[in-house]
């Protein structure tokens, strides 16, 4: 049997701060385990508020941070063994990242295409610049753009939605099997947000990419996830099928979180219609 795509096993991350006298310990990730199957691409969502450890967890999955204890395996291989530059490049060609702020995701003084070309030359067999450009164009087409639209342009010439799509294309250049996206739409305007969200669905369905979607937003999580875990202060409090968990959360924290979501539909349900005085003033 093929090993799982990703296995996270009893992972802990402890940050210690301060000197000898006042040592402060922050248990950022506390005994987290989950796994993604190799042959079934899915959108796996990690839900958490600030301080839940979700970004730390993402950093460990991306091999940017070593876990304090526990093991993370990608296709059966412990990430700790990936140390040399060659091994890291090989790993990055399979596991890619998308970041939160599209306006900061590209160097404002450089042209955007350099990242696409660099990824093509480092991660694929495209050594010449023509081949790399072809590869970049191919990846851009997957997100509904083309190299002609992007070539030679600076980040400030594009909207947040476009930038995030270029970032996704950049991650796709090496045909990865896993993409970790940390709050990828929280900074994107409402009218452009769904384009990016739908793109993740397309990646899963058409290109077989598994996605770890990290967010605090339950509504988009419901819209695209297959499975999810809910984290609170480093621990996983609840997990399972996304629709089931969000429709009927069991853990007190999940219930609280679910109830805190402001819904447009509920806004007028129990209001008495007096000048739009909503249900919120309880």
């Amino acid at each position: 049997m093929r090993p799982n795509l990703l296995e996270v096993e009893h992972v802990n991350k402890i940050f210690t701060r301060g000197g000898f006298v006042s040592r402060r310990v922050n248990h950022a990730v506390n005994d987290v385990s989950f796994s993604l199957a190799a042959d079934k691409p899915e959108v796996f969502t990690i839900i958490g508020e600030s301080g839940s450890g979700k970004t730390t967890l993402a950093g460990m999955i991306l091999n940017s941070l070593p876990p304090t204890s526990g093991q993370i395996r990608f296709r059966g291989k412990d990430l700790r063994e990936i140390r040399s530059r060659r091994a890291r490049l090989e790993f990055m060609s399979h596991v890619q990242a998308i970041f939160q702020n599209p306006f900061d995701a590209f160097n404002p003084l450089k042209r955007i295409d350099r990242y696409l070309f660099s990824a093509a030359q480092r991660f694929t067999e495209c050594r010449t610049s023509e081949k790399a450009a072809e590869r970049a164009d191919e990846a851009l087409h997957k997100v509904g753009l083309s190299l002609a639209e992007v070539r030679g342009r600076y980040p400030h010439e594009m909207s947040g939605g476009q930038l995030q799509r270029v970032a996704i294309a950049r991650a796709l250049v090496s045909n990865p099997s896993l993409i970790v996206a940390d709050e990828p739409v929280s900074m994107i305007d409402a009218s452009l947000r769904m384009t990016v969200i739908n793109l993740f669905k397309k990646l899963r369905d058409e290109f077989g990419v598994s996605i770890i979607y990290i967010t605090h937003d339950l509504a988009t999580a419901y819209y695209i996830s297959d499975r999810l875990i809910i984290m609170q202060k480093g621990r996983v409090v609840e997990g399972g099928d996304a629709r089931t968990v969000l429709a009927a959360p069991q853990h007190p924290y999940s219930i609280k979180l679910r109830q805190a979501v402001l819904s447009v539909d509920d806004a007028w349900r129990d209001s008495s219609f007096t000048g739009g005085m909503p249900a919120i003033a309880t």
Binding site: N107, Q121, A167
Partner: peptide
């Protein structure tokens, strides 16, 4: 700590 540095890392830049 800027995101474009991480973008560069994940684009395979040395």
């Amino acid at each position: 700590t800027r995101e474009f540095t991480r973008q560069a890392v994940f684009s395979g830049m040395s």
